[in-house]
Amino acid sequence: MNWNFSAGNFSLRLPVTDQDGDALYELMSVQAQVDHLPRQAMTVPAQALDELRRMAMRFETREAAFWLVEGMYDKQLVARIGIQKINWMQLAAQLQWELYSAIELPELQEIFPAVANFIFDELNLHRLEMRLREGSEKHEALLKGLGFTFEGILPAQVEYEGDSVNMAVWSLLSSDRRA
Protein backbone atom coordinates (compact mmCIF):
# COMPACT_ATOMS: atom_id res chain seq x y z
CA MET A 1 0.00 0.00 0.00
CA ASN A 2 1.33 3.42 -0.92
CA TRP A 3 0.79 5.80 1.99
CA ASN A 4 1.99 8.84 0.07
CA PHE A 5 -0.34 10.52 -2.40
CA SER A 6 -1.15 13.82 -4.03
CA ALA A 7 -4.19 16.08 -3.76
CA GLY A 8 -4.51 18.82 -6.37
CA ASN A 9 -1.66 21.23 -5.85
CA PHE A 10 -0.47 19.47 -2.72
CA SER A 11 1.37 16.29 -1.90
CA LEU A 12 0.94 14.27 1.27
CA ARG A 13 3.70 12.04 2.56
CA LEU A 14 4.68 10.24 5.72
CA PRO A 15 7.41 12.14 7.60
CA VAL A 16 11.08 11.22 7.61
CA THR A 17 12.48 11.40 11.11
CA ASP A 18 15.95 12.79 10.41
CA GLN A 19 14.79 15.18 7.71
CA ASP A 20 11.55 16.91 8.72
CA GLY A 21 12.40 18.22 12.19
CA ASP A 22 12.91 21.87 11.27
CA ALA A 23 9.73 22.15 9.21
CA LEU A 24 7.63 20.43 11.84
CA TYR A 25 9.08 22.60 14.58
CA GLU A 26 8.23 25.71 12.64
CA LEU A 27 4.63 24.56 12.27
CA MET A 28 4.13 23.44 15.85
CA SER A 29 5.96 26.24 17.63
CA VAL A 30 3.10 28.65 16.97
CA GLN A 31 0.55 28.48 19.78
CA ALA A 32 -2.38 29.51 17.55
CA GLN A 33 -1.70 26.49 15.35
CA VAL A 34 -1.98 23.94 18.18
CA ASP A 35 -4.45 25.66 20.50
CA HIS A 36 -7.41 23.66 19.25
CA LEU A 37 -5.90 20.29 20.30
CA PRO A 38 -5.23 21.73 22.99
CA ARG A 39 -1.49 21.53 23.28
CA GLN A 40 1.41 23.79 24.21
CA ALA A 41 3.48 25.05 21.33
CA MET A 42 6.93 23.56 20.97
CA THR A 43 9.68 25.68 22.45
CA VAL A 44 12.83 23.77 21.47
CA PRO A 45 13.60 21.93 18.18
CA ALA A 46 14.31 18.68 20.04
CA GLN A 47 10.57 18.41 20.66
CA ALA A 48 9.96 18.12 16.92
CA LEU A 49 12.47 15.27 16.71
CA ASP A 50 10.74 13.55 19.62
CA GLU A 51 7.38 14.05 17.90
CA LEU A 52 8.73 12.56 14.68
CA ARG A 53 10.01 9.50 16.52
CA ARG A 54 6.66 9.04 18.22
CA MET A 55 4.89 9.36 14.89
CA ALA A 56 7.13 6.67 13.43
CA MET A 57 6.53 4.30 16.34
CA ARG A 58 2.78 4.83 16.27
CA PHE A 59 2.76 4.24 12.54
CA GLU A 60 4.75 1.01 12.94
CA THR A 61 1.96 -0.38 15.11
CA ARG A 62 -0.70 1.10 12.78
CA GLU A 63 -2.09 3.01 15.71
CA ALA A 64 -1.70 6.31 13.90
CA ALA A 65 -0.59 7.82 10.62
CA PHE A 66 0.42 11.43 10.11
CA TRP A 67 1.03 13.08 6.78
CA LEU A 68 3.03 16.19 6.06
CA VAL A 69 1.17 18.28 3.51
CA GLU A 70 3.45 20.19 1.17
CA GLY A 71 2.99 22.37 -1.86
CA MET A 72 3.34 20.22 -4.94
CA TYR A 73 5.93 22.51 -6.50
CA ASP A 74 7.59 24.59 -3.76
CA LYS A 75 7.66 21.65 -1.28
CA GLN A 76 6.83 24.02 1.56
CA LEU A 77 5.05 22.47 4.53
CA VAL A 78 1.53 23.87 4.88
CA ALA A 79 -0.04 21.45 7.35
CA ARG A 80 0.19 18.19 9.19
CA ILE A 81 -2.86 15.98 8.94
CA GLY A 82 -3.16 12.64 10.65
CA ILE A 83 -5.33 9.96 12.08
CA GLN A 84 -4.73 8.47 15.50
CA LYS A 85 -6.34 6.04 17.90
CA ILE A 86 -7.14 3.89 14.91
CA ASN A 87 -9.54 1.23 16.13
CA TRP A 88 -9.44 -1.60 13.60
CA MET A 89 -12.23 -3.46 15.41
CA GLN A 90 -14.63 -0.53 15.41
CA LEU A 91 -13.33 0.75 12.04
CA ALA A 92 -12.92 4.21 13.52
CA ALA A 93 -10.16 6.78 13.93
CA GLN A 94 -9.60 10.29 15.21
CA LEU A 95 -8.52 13.01 12.83
CA GLN A 96 -6.03 15.64 13.92
CA TRP A 97 -4.55 18.55 12.05
CA GLU A 98 -2.27 21.51 12.52
CA LEU A 99 -2.61 24.11 9.78
CA TYR A 100 -0.70 27.22 8.82
CA SER A 101 -3.01 30.22 8.85
CA ALA A 102 -2.89 30.38 5.05
CA ILE A 103 -4.76 27.09 4.84
CA GLU A 104 -8.44 27.82 4.68
CA LEU A 105 -11.49 26.04 3.36
CA PRO A 106 -10.65 26.18 -0.38
CA GLU A 107 -7.23 24.62 0.24
CA LEU A 108 -8.70 21.99 2.57
CA GLN A 109 -11.39 21.20 0.03
CA GLU A 110 -8.54 20.38 -2.31
CA ILE A 111 -6.56 18.36 0.23
CA PHE A 112 -9.11 16.61 2.42
CA PRO A 113 -11.06 14.51 -0.12
CA ALA A 114 -7.88 12.62 -0.96
CA VAL A 115 -7.28 12.01 2.75
CA ALA A 116 -10.88 10.85 3.25
CA ASN A 117 -10.68 8.58 0.22
CA PHE A 118 -7.53 6.99 1.57
CA ILE A 119 -9.06 6.50 5.04
CA PHE A 120 -12.37 5.12 3.84
CA ASP A 121 -11.41 3.30 0.64
CA GLU A 122 -7.85 2.12 1.27
CA LEU A 123 -7.96 1.59 5.04
CA ASN A 124 -11.65 0.61 4.98
CA LEU A 125 -12.47 2.61 8.09
CA HIS A 126 -16.07 3.68 8.63
CA ARG A 127 -16.04 6.51 11.14
CA LEU A 128 -13.68 9.47 11.29
CA GLU A 129 -14.08 11.89 14.16
CA MET A 130 -12.31 14.99 15.33
CA ARG A 131 -12.25 16.07 18.94
CA LEU A 132 -11.18 19.64 19.44
CA ARG A 133 -11.28 22.25 22.14
CA GLU A 134 -14.75 23.76 22.52
CA GLY A 135 -14.86 27.19 20.94
CA SER A 136 -12.31 26.54 18.19
CA GLU A 137 -14.52 28.44 15.74
CA LYS A 138 -12.13 28.49 12.81
CA HIS A 139 -11.59 24.74 12.88
CA GLU A 140 -15.25 23.96 13.49
CA ALA A 141 -16.17 26.08 10.45
CA LEU A 142 -13.64 24.14 8.39
CA LEU A 143 -15.06 20.81 9.55
CA LYS A 144 -18.57 21.95 8.72
CA GLY A 145 -17.40 23.05 5.29
CA LEU A 146 -15.88 19.62 4.72
CA GLY A 147 -19.15 17.87 5.50
CA PHE A 148 -18.55 16.84 9.10
CA THR A 149 -21.50 16.59 11.50
CA PHE A 150 -21.45 18.09 14.98
CA GLU A 151 -22.22 15.43 17.59
CA GLY A 152 -21.94 17.23 20.91
CA ILE A 153 -19.61 18.46 23.62
CA LEU A 154 -17.75 16.04 25.87
CA PRO A 155 -17.22 17.83 29.19
CA ALA A 156 -13.94 18.14 31.10
CA GLN A 157 -11.95 15.77 28.92
CA VAL A 158 -8.51 17.29 29.29
CA GLU A 159 -6.73 19.03 32.16
CA TYR A 160 -4.84 21.82 30.42
CA GLU A 161 -3.04 24.70 32.15
CA GLY A 162 -5.18 24.27 35.25
CA ASP A 163 -8.48 24.20 33.38
CA SER A 164 -10.78 21.33 32.56
CA VAL A 165 -11.28 21.58 28.81
CA ASN A 166 -14.48 20.53 27.07
CA MET A 167 -14.03 18.86 23.69
CA ALA A 168 -16.37 19.25 20.73
CA VAL A 169 -16.93 16.11 18.64
CA TRP A 170 -17.44 16.20 14.88
CA SER A 171 -17.64 13.17 12.65
CA LEU A 172 -17.66 12.03 9.06
CA LEU A 173 -18.85 8.54 8.10
CA SER A 174 -17.93 6.68 4.97
CA SER A 175 -21.65 6.64 4.15
CA ASP A 176 -21.83 10.46 4.45
CA ARG A 177 -19.84 10.77 1.23
CA ARG A 178 -22.44 8.84 -0.73
CA ALA A 179 -25.35 10.71 0.83
Binding site: M89, Q90, L91, A92, H126, R127, E129, T149, E151, G152, I153, L154, P155, A156, V169, S171, L173, S175
Partner: peptide, 26 residues
Protein backbone atom coordinates in the same frame (compact mmCIF):
# COMPACT_ATOMS: atom_id res chain seq x y z
CA UNK B 1 -26.37 14.06 31.36
CA UNK B 2 -26.42 13.17 27.67
CA UNK B 3 -23.51 15.09 26.13
CA UNK B 4 -23.10 13.71 22.62
CA UNK B 5 -24.35 11.04 20.28
CA UNK B 6 -21.54 9.37 18.38
CA UNK B 7 -22.95 8.26 15.04
CA UNK B 8 -22.11 4.65 14.24
CA UNK B 9 -19.71 4.71 17.15
CA UNK B 10 -20.17 1.03 17.97
CA UNK B 11 -19.73 -1.80 15.52
CA UNK B 12 -22.35 -4.51 15.82
CA UNK B 13 -21.46 -6.68 12.83
CA UNK B 14 -19.32 -6.87 9.73
CA UNK B 15 -20.99 -3.86 8.18
CA UNK B 16 -23.47 -2.76 10.81
CA UNK B 17 -23.05 -0.06 13.43
CA UNK B 18 -25.01 1.50 16.29
CA UNK B 19 -25.02 5.03 17.64
CA UNK B 20 -23.45 5.65 21.04
CA UNK B 21 -25.12 8.01 23.49
CA UNK B 22 -22.38 9.47 25.62
CA UNK B 23 -23.47 10.39 29.16
CA UNK B 24 -21.35 12.23 31.72
CA UNK B 25 -21.59 13.06 35.37
CA UNK B 26 -19.29 15.83 36.62
Amino acid sequence: TLSATLRDGWRTGTESFADVAQFYKL
